[in-house]
């Protein structure tokens, strides 16, 4: 893997451990402008990776370059932060702040010194995420989805070149999610955006590229069609669940969707979705992990 001049994020052998647990285990990754979706189960290392990219966490080993600069150098780190927007997974807001006051406060920390320009920018990002009407409302009185959008609004301040978003669509209703996808797609035209999510629909709708993490390692890195193609010829609709399938669930039609190598009797082959491919990959990863554990025990 070679970083090019257009590479915005470059990770080489990045490792982060929490005691004996490797949250990131020698990750190599290059990201370029556009939206990259980060998929993986809970505890896969997605949030740790995003925190490293957001300069709030330093890895134990490996090399990180963000926007062409080394975040371990104080001056470079400040420069990166001037060009970075970050929405963390765990949201925290000081009590008593209104949505406007919080984004305004964050704008000061992001060096928007001129009061009038700052006010205009705060209003722009709040309008962008659809919170213009509730700007004066206290954050403690906003819904969970609205709070998540407040956090997103502060990340969008100044239209950053690198946007790191940890589960931006969690807690949003379908209409809000559709609206937000439009906003993010517009922003991604001029920036590098990394989105961690559990929503495969968001990845399918937004992302040019998808990275699947599991146990701190990259298990897939490619385009969405490439990931979907992994499931081609492996998704079947049948009248009954297939015990041999890697994943099987009842659909709204009453028939069962079976994902796996095994062909259930009387089943009909259907077009795979991103979710099918992800589940198939997850199943393969789990099997490989189990095999590795068995081999280790035997050895």
């Amino acid at each position: 893997m070679t970083a090019t001049s257009s590479t915005s994020v470059s990770l080489r052998g990045v490792t982060k451990r929490y005691r004996s647990l490797a949250a990131l285990d020698g990750v190599d990754l290059d990201l370029e402008p556009g939206i990259t979706g980060l998929l993986g189960p809970n505890g896969a290392g997605k949030t740790t990776m995003l925190r490293v990219m957001a300069t709030v966490l330093r890895p134990d080993a490996g090399e990180v370059r963000l926007l062409g600069r080394d975040p371990t150098q104080p001056d470079a780190r400040t420069d990166i932060r001037r060009r970075l927007g970050y929405q963390p997974q765990e949201l925290g807001f000081p009590r008593g702040f209104s949505a406007f006051a919080f984004v305004n406060y964050m704008a000061v920390l992001k060096e928007w010194a001129d009061r009038d320009l700052r006010t205009t920018e705060v209003r722009r990002v709040l309008d962008l995420v659809g919170l213009g009407d509730v700007a004066p409302k206290r954050i403690s009185r906003l819904s969970g989805g609205q709070r998540r959008r407040v956090a997103l609004a502060q990340a969008l301040l100044g239209t950053p070149e690198l946007l790191v978003l940890d589960e931006p669509t969690t807690g949003l209703d379908p209409e809000q999610r559709a609206s937000l996808r439009g906003v993010l797609a517009d922003i991604a035209a001029t920036s590098t955006m990394v989105i961690s999510t559990h929503q495969t629909e968001d990845v399918a709708a937004l992302c040019r590229r998808v990275v699947v993490l599991d146990a701190g390692r990259v298990h897939f890195d490619g385009t969405v069609p490439e990931l979907v193609s992994l499931a081609t010829g492996r998704v079947w609709m049948a009248a009954a669940p297939d015990a041999a399938a890697q994943a099987s669930w009842r659909t709204a039609s009453g028939r069962y969707r079976n994902v796996g190598e095994h062909v259930p009797s009387g089943a009909e082959l259907v077009e795979p979705s991103l979710e099918d491919a992800y589940l198939l990959l997850r199943g393969a990863t789990a099997s490989a992990s189990a095999d590795a554990a068995t081999s280790a025990e035997v050895a």
Binding site: V56, L84, P94, M106, V108, L109
Partner: peptide, 19 residues
């Protein structure tokens, strides 16, 4: 309790020591 936004503040260019 008092610094719930520290994660977001930490990614901003304003010097944390100064804050």
């Amino acid at each position: 309790e008092a610094g719930p936004a520290l994660e977001q503040e930490s990614a901003a260019p304003y010097p944390l020591a100064r804050l």
